[in-house]
């Protein structure tokens, strides 16, 4: 028999969003999604960032993108991980109209109990639209999830 000691890390962090992030989150309060356009490759990058990794130049042209787009992929989690959302929850990547990169996000608005049915609804190419919090606070969670667009 060996002894075991319990331990837990509780360390506070205050993460800076930076100037680019700040602009993005302020726009979220008005239910707007902003991306930056790279002056060299012309891609509209979401989440916005201070530089384009590919071209290695500063980015400062802001572009509003739609809160609607297409799913590129999805997964539904069915087991509980410590500290992560209660299952089931659907995580996916959505390419918003007007953006050149996808956004990792939650998907919802449908019954998630049967994964096969979920995958029939949320497929690569399925159009989805953001469902917003009633009173956005300027956080990424202002977008509750993306749900299928009717029709």
């Amino acid at each position: 028999m060996v002894l075991k000691f319990e331990a837990k890390w509780e360390i506070p962090y205050v993460h800076s969003a930076g100037e680019h992030g700040t602009k993005f989150f302020e726009a979220l309060r008005e239910k707007k999604i902003l991306g930056v356009k790279c002056p060299e490759c012309g891609r509209v990058l979401i989440p916005p960032r201070a530089f384009c990794e590919r071209c290695f130049v500063d980015t400062d042209e802001w572009v509003e993108v739609k809160d609607e787009g297409v799913i590129t992929t999805v997964t539904v989690t069915y087991i509980k991980f410590t500290g992560l959302p209660d299952p089931p929850y659907a995580t996916g990547i959505v390419k918003l109209d007007g953006a050149d990169t996808g956004m990792l996000c939650l998907l919802g608005g449908v019954d998630l109990s049967d994964w096969k049915k979920v995958h029939e609804i949320f497929k690569p190419g399925t159009r989805v639209k953001a469902v917003w919090k009633d009173k956005p606070e300027g956080k990424i969670t202002d977008i509750l999830y993306f749900e299928p667009v009717e029709g």
Binding site: A17, G18, E19, A50, F56
Partner: peptide, 25 residues
């Protein structure tokens, strides 16, 4: 004490070094 996230500060350092050397990424 920087307000920007650490990766944006790192980008500035890399950019400055490349400029100093006169080379591209």
């Amino acid at each position: 004490i920087h307000e920007e996230p650490f990766y944006n500060v790192a980008y500035q350092a890399a950019k400055t070094a490349m400029k100093d050397a006169g080379i591209e990424r």
